[in-house]
Design a binder for these strands. Structure first.
Lengths: 221, 221
DNA sequence: CCAGTACCGTACCGTACGGTACGCTCGATA
DNA sequence: TATCGAGCGTACCGTACGGTACGGTACTGG
């Protein structure tokens, strides 16, 4: 008996890339799930997914094992296309450092304010309450922690170039994270409307970067 | 026909104080709900609540109208005992300003890391997804916004005393909020263990206050 | 002592939803 | 053309849970 996708995932760590990427048809199913999550009008039931994806429930169960498996696959599918590869960090000067940080801040704000992210995080948070199949862990691994791992090398390169001063890059990153996100994510998750356009995001990101550099920058920056 | 508590609440704005505080027995019921939320082992069903509170389901429905009414009342009950009254802000010097900010930071961190807050926020976030009865709004009003309204006068007093410099107290508060909370709340909501003891909270708060003062403090501070 | 009220405990109802079974179609392979 | 597997649509099952009904009990006011 061929092992189902669900069984396959069980042995994996949260957030690891899927061993076997979903087929095109499977991607369409997962996109249907995302669409339903985002619209939110309808309950996210297996029937609704099947109807939306024009597939049978039996297929859903064959592919994903159970409802949790489907949700997990959806979260991973979304995660798989969010973060691009990490580019190598070469020598930095003050300007490029600032640009890098600005880019991170903008893309992070863009992600967390997107309807998809809000919907997905809501599901994951709700799920984290009732244990079993840690969607929360996957979301954290691909969100907060993934960006941390991408930002920290930049911070360290900044320090190596004498532009930044800090002892612990993790702590420095967390401060950056706080300055960028502030109360935005929790307000969105709790249902506030609060939509930022690209301009506001850029300004917000700029302010956060300025503040971060004010706290951690060396004279040279 | 006497209007039920649920109907009574409908006409109120999110987060306003209850017109008629719950009776002692009703408080016990709401505490039972909170206890169930925090333990999380059991599903939060009306049956479970009735069993835990040793009351009949019929009574629950009489008092609260429906499940949402019960949840709403629970959130408001918890909110009602979280925030103490706002003390008047008198003249500030650098030391007392720092103390005030430190107190806010400590109490905010203590709240958001408490199991009760995490459980309640999870419920509210989940609820915010499916519209109807805005628990999210209530939680926001009594959490994030309530503390904002308490902190901003202190910031303004600090500015009046020449200790702080900022144009917009809301923006300054949001920075403070971000520096204090960082990634803590979202990590907890998404299920990370991450328990801070009182010492860590105090250190964290101190760091946040230092950073805030570094950004907004005037020479005098 | 009697009515009325509040409320507990429990049984019950309806339905929504997770999960399964099955018949049918369609495309691929021999 | 016959066979087969993948997968769609639909019907079905069991159960959990929101909500209601009702009998029994204890307390209160007359």
């Amino acid at each position: 008996m061929r092992s189902s996708l669900a069984e396959q995932q069980e042995t994996m760590e949260a957030g690891a890339a899927a061993l076997q990427p979903p087929s095109v048809r499977q991607q369409a199913v997962l996109d249907a799930v995302l669409a339903l999550m985002v619209e939110g009008g309808e309950q996210l039931t297996m029937d609704a997914v099947a109807r939306r994806a024009s597939c049978s429930k039996e297929t859903l169960y064959k592919w994903y094992g159970d409802r949790d498996g489907l949700l997990t696959a959806t979260v991973q599918w979304q995660a798989s296309r969010v973060h691009a590869g990490r580019e190598a960090v070469q020598a930095l000067d003050g300007t490029t450092l600032r640009e890098h940080l600005q880019d991170f801040a903008v893309s992070w704000l863009t992600v967390i304010t997107s309807r998809t992210s809000v919907a997905l995080n809501r599901i994951a948070v709700a799920h984290a309450g009732s244990r079993k199949s840690n969607l929360g862990g996957i979301v954290l691994a691909n969100g907060r922690f993934a960006i941390g791992e991408r930002v920290k090398p930049v911070l360290e390169a900044g320090r190596a170039a004498g532009l930044l001063a800090f002892a612990d890059s993790e702590a420095a990153f967390r401060t950056f994270f706080g300055l960028v996100g502030r109360d935005i994510q929790i307000r969105l998750l709790l249902g506030e409307a609060l939509d930022l356009d690209a301009d506001e995001i850029r300004r917000d990101a700029g302010r956060a970067v300025d503040q971060f550099l004010a706290l951690y920058g060396q004279a040279k920056a």
